[in-house]
Each structure stands twice: as structure tokens, then as C-alpha cells.
């Protein structure tokens, strides 16, 4: 490993200044569960680390009428224990609960999962499903980007050098609106998604779906928001035929690869199954919230 300089700024302003103040390659660190491993395997290049965990607002959250405002560095172990958040965003909490072991969850964060930008990241489809947005800050000021536009490729995202993820923002779901996340792995726990599906649905008092978002993960270079799958759900009672149509639309939208965890054909099939099952879970939760 070649971390030659470790910085623990106390404020976002200080962190932003550190990000643009050096010729040495500078990386932001949240939990470090990806960064420390990556820096161990790339021992040659000197690395300057800016640890964001000493900045109070990066570690905190608020939940009010406006919705959830999440400090991106809060560890998953702390996040998954927030019962008020779990009530409103059960799908996001279940995605965070699937990341690694208890030990890894003690460090890993949702913001880190997002910025590491792996195609198989569990929280990314879950965030897209609930319409989450990223507030990014840099020397030039702030900007807000939808999560589906944040990740641009395998391990790549829209943040420019000198920028950092300051906040994850999610609107408060209305009664009748809830989410769910499911993934497939070959074991019972502690593995990387072969495919994943994040769903949110909104039901009116008659049980008709008035809004839906379907996001799929690990079946393309980035997690995908599948509008055609959502369209198959909107205006229906989320009956078997509509849900099957959404599943087929998700399978059609997938462009997976074959690797040792699964083949193209299997991933295409299983992502449809996950969309179907996660939709039914979200439906049940939405009904219960009315």
C-alpha cells in the first residue's frame, strides 16, 4: 500500500480544499472497505487519502416531512438500525443489510457503495428505485444529480476531480408508496449480487398503482432504471399478468455478461424473477402503509 498522506478534515470546506490542493493522486475515504483493499493491490502509485468520517454532517442523517437526508459516510451497521428510516424505506435498508459481513457493515457506507460505482452494488438499484439524488460539492459549488445519472460506467461516476458526495437525498414516500430490494447470490449470505432488483410502487386507495420505479443491478455496466417495466405496472392492480410484463421488460432491458457467478441467459432470467418478487413485496408494504 502506498498511502503517503492521511488527512482527516473537520468540515466539508476543508475537505474540498484538500481535494484540489495536491499533485499526488488524492482519494476520498469513507469506510475504506474498498479503498484500503484497492490501495493494497496497487502498491506502486502514491496515494493521498482524505478521510471524511471526522466531518459530523457526513456521518449523520435527518428524516422529516421533506424526506431523508443522509450523510454518505454513515456506516451500514448504524444505518440499518435506524427504525424510522426502515419504516419508510425498507428496500434501501434491506440493500444496505446485504453488504458484506457484520464487520464490513461496521465500516462500509451507502455513499462509499455509490462512489465505488460497482455494477453489482446493492444499494444503487435500491436508491434509484426510490428516486434518490446525490448532492455533490466541489470548489465550483454544489450540484444535484439523480442516482441513475451518477454512475456512468464500471467503477466510474460523474464526479469530477475535486468533487465529493456531500449528501444523499430521498423524498418522503406518501402513504401507499413503499420499496423493496432483492438480489440473487449462490450462497445464503456474504456474496456479490449476480442480479438485483429495486422496486418502488405507489398505490391509491383502490389499490391501483399510480407510480412505479424499477431498477436492476449487476446485469449491465451500471444499474439501470427500466421505464418500460414501470410502465407495465402503472395503472394496474399489480396483478400477475402486469407483474409478469414488468419482469419481461426488465429481462429485455438487461445486458449482462457471463462470468463465474452466472451466465448471460441465467442473469437475464433471474433479474425478471427478482423484479416480480420484489414488486409483490413492495405492493404488500404499500398496502400496509395506506
Amino acid at each position: 500500500m502506498a498511502v503517503v498522506d492521511y488527512n482527516a478534515p473537520q468540515s466539508v470546506q476543508e475537505a474540498v480544499a484538500l481535494l484540489s490542493g495536491s499533485d499526488i493522486k488524492t482519494k476520498v475515504m469513507a469506510g475504506g472497505t474498498d479503498l484500503i483493499i484497492q490501495s493494497k493491490s496497487q502498491a506502486v502509485e502514491p496515494l493521498r487519502v482524505v478521510d471524511l468520517k471526522h466531518i459530523a454532517e457526513m456521518m449523520s442523517y435527518s428524516l422529516d416531512d421533506g424526506g431523508l437526508s443522509l450523510g454518505p459516510c454513515m456506516c451500514c451497521a448504524e444505518f440499518t438500525a435506524l427504525h424510522d428510516v426502515e419504516t419508510l424505506y425498507p428496500g434501501l435498508v434491506e440493500a444496505a443489510y446485504l453488504i458484506g459481513s457484520t464487520q464490513v457493515q461496521g465500516r462500509a457506507s451507502i455513499g462509499g457503495n455509490l462512489c465505488n460505482s460497482s455494477p453489482a452494488a446493492d444499494t444503487i438499484p435500491a436508491l434509484i428505485a426510490i428516486g434518490a439524488k446525490c448532492r455533490i460539492v466541489g470548489a465550483g459549488g454544489e450540484r444535484t444529480v439523480a442516482v441513475e445519472d451518477f454512475v456512468t460506467g464500471v467503477g466510474r461516476n460523474c464526479m469530477q476531480s475535486g468533487e465529493l458526495l456531500q449528501r444523499i437525498l430521498v423524498a418522503r414516500p406518501a402513504p401507499g408508496s413503499r420499496d423493496a430490494y432483492l438480489r440473487f447470490i449462490p450462497r445464503t449470505e456474504m456474496d456479490i449480487a449476480v442480479a438485483g432488483a429495486g422496486i418502488s410502487v405507489t398505490l391509491d386507495s383502490q389499490g391501483v398503482c399510480t407510480a412505479a420505479r424499477v431498477a436492476i443491478g449487476a446485469v449491465a455496466q451500471t444499474a439501470l432504471l427500466v421505464a418500460s417495466a414501470a410502465d407495465a405496472l402503472i395503472g394496474t392492480q399489480l396483478d400477475d399478468a402486469s407483474v409478469a410484463k414488468a419482469a419481461a421488460a426488465a429481462s429485455a432491458a438487461a445486458s449482462p455478461i457471463t462470468d463465474r457467478r452466472g451466465t448471460i441467459e441465467f442473469r437475464r432470467h433471474i433479474v425478471g424473477v427478482l423484479v416480480k418478487r420484489a414488486t409483490l413485496i413492495a405492493k404488500e408494504r404499500a398496502q400496509a402503509s395506506l
Partner: peptide, 21 residues
């Protein structure tokens, strides 16, 4: 961070010491 043999607590929270500086 896969095997847990280096498990310690950091401010009471379970972590892998190999994934902490």
C-alpha cells in the same frame, strides 16, 4: 476483510482491523 480473523471493535463496533488504517 473476508475472513474475520482480525476482528476487533472500534468505538464498540465490530470491524476488520485489516480494513482500518
Amino acid at each position: 476483510g473476508d475472513c474475520g480473523a482480525c476482528s476487533v471493535t472500534l468505538d464498540g463496533r465490530l470491524v476488520c482491523a485489516c480494513l482500518v488504517l
